[in-house]
């Protein structure tokens, strides 16, 4: 028996919007720790990892570990029927092939339940060890989204370089080139507007902008984004989900042949 009650139901809608461009089908894993997911895009270049900790739910009951295969577009269709202020409860019984989403309006005058068929999904799960990164950049998520969007109108790839001077995003295309440098800036009114660079050593990596733009669909989940870079590793783009967990994206770099 599984029963997860999330008062801030709109958060689940935002989580779905943050993943469904990258992944079509995924297994949601439910355990005592929380509600989680790991899925790769079809080309195995990018991976999304989600964790919503059990403590973040108003009510969390998960009698035994359960993996539920869902089509994210279908799940999104159902969640879009919930009001933005609705409380969402996810329910499933052991051994059934469906999941129920229950939507309650804040004053309890409307209650809806939507039952969705589950799917068998053969997904590969990658082991991702904790790593030391050469550079970690924290910046406003809206600023990162703006940079990725702007650069993708010029080129297909971005070189992200971190030096003592700041973090530089560069691209080149048929019509020309573009460079955007963000300097460390801690002297802002609000901490979420700061750009903070922790650098062990300079690092420069090339990534496909198409994937980074997909990652920025998570912007409504967090005011800030953390970008962790190391020359030997995929980049990690993390959006913290307040009081609940995170959505992390991993993207393998491009290398010059």
């Amino acid at each position: 028996m599984l029963e997860l009650r999330l008062v801030q139901g709109s958060l689940l809608k935002k989580v779905l919007d943050a993943m469904r461009e990258l992944v079509n089908d995924a297994n949601f894993d439910c355990s005592a720790t929380g509600f989680s997911l790991q899925a790769m895009d079809s080309s195995h270049v990018a991976l999304v990892a989600l964790l919503l900790r059990s403590e973040g739910f108003e009510h969390y009951r998960c009698d035994r570990n359960l993996s539920m295969g869902m089509n994210l577009n279908n799940m999104s269709k159902m969640l879009r029927c919930a009001g933005n202020d609705d409380i969402i409860t996810i329910k499933a019984d052991d051994g059934t092939d469906s999941v129920t989403f229950m939507f309650e309006s804040p004053n309890q005058d409307k209650i809806a339940d939507f039952e969705m068929k589950l799917m068998d999904i053969d997904s590969e799960h990658l082991g991702i060890p904790d790593a030391e990164y050469q550079a970690i950049v924290r910046m406003p998520s809206s600023e990162f989204a703006r940079i990725c969007k702007d650069l993708s109108s010029i080129g297909d790839t971005v070189v992200i370089s971190v030096t003592k001077e700041g973090v530089k995003f560069s691209t080149a295309g048929d019509i020309g080139t573009a460079n955007i440098v963000c300097r460390q800036n801690k002297t802002v009114d609000k901490p979420e507007e700061a750009t903070i660079i922790e650098m062990q050593e300079p690092v420069s990596l090339t990534f496909a902008l198409r994937y980074l733009n997909s990652f920025t669909k998570a912007t409504p989940l967090s005011d800030t984004v953390t970008i962790s870079l190391s020359s030997e590793l995929p980049v990690v783009v993390e959006y913290k989900i307040a009081e609940m967990g995170y959505i992390r994206y991993y993207l393998a770099p491009k290398i010059e042949e």
């Binding site: 990658l126 590793l233 393998a252």
Partner: peptide, 14 residues
């Protein structure tokens, strides 16, 4: 030309 690497080149199956 840049070559796109895949995640399996960095991480192994769990």
């Amino acid at each position: 030309w840049d070559t796109q690497l895949q995640l399996q080149g960095f991480y192994t199956n769990a």
